[in-house]
């Protein structure tokens, strides 16, 4: 499981945002908030990613409330595991970077 391919930045933030149930626009806002405005998900990119993540079983749509066309999604157990995995990988990257560059993060 540890050798799963790296998640893209978009995928990572989408999954993180769905730690709590959110609809599409909410995911965009949360991602922008978490990354302090650095990562902006465009609607077409997000839509494609949501479809792919649902197919993969990492997220699932919530049963829609009556009258609302806005679909809400939430993280599944498998999605949670994928996030944990990625966190592990990122830790390794950061540790190696810091040990070689001396942790002088000036970039």
């Amino acid at each position: 499981m540890i050798n799963e391919p790296a998640l893209t930045e978009s995928t990572y933030y989408i999954l993180l945002s769905l730690y709590e149930p959110r609809h599409g626009y909410g995911i965009m806002q949360q991602t922008e908030l978490l990354s302090h405005g650095r990562v902006r998900l465009a609607a077409g990119t997000l839509y494609g990613a949501l479809t792919a993540l649902c197919d993969k079983g990492w997220i699932a749509p919530l049963p829609s409330e009556d009258g609302s066309r806005k679909k809400e999604y939430r993280l599944t157990d498998r999605g949670f595991a994928a996030l944990q995995n990625e966190l592990e990988r990122l830790r390794e990257l950061v540790e190696n970077g810091e040990s070689i560059l001396g942790g002088n993060g000036n970039g």
Binding site: T8, E9, S10, V39, R40, A42, G44, T45, G48, A49
Partner: peptide, 15 residues
Amino acid sequence: GAFDLFSDIDSRMDH
């Protein structure tokens, strides 16, 4: 606010 359809290389390639 800003309006784009694609925000990463993967989705641009898919398009």
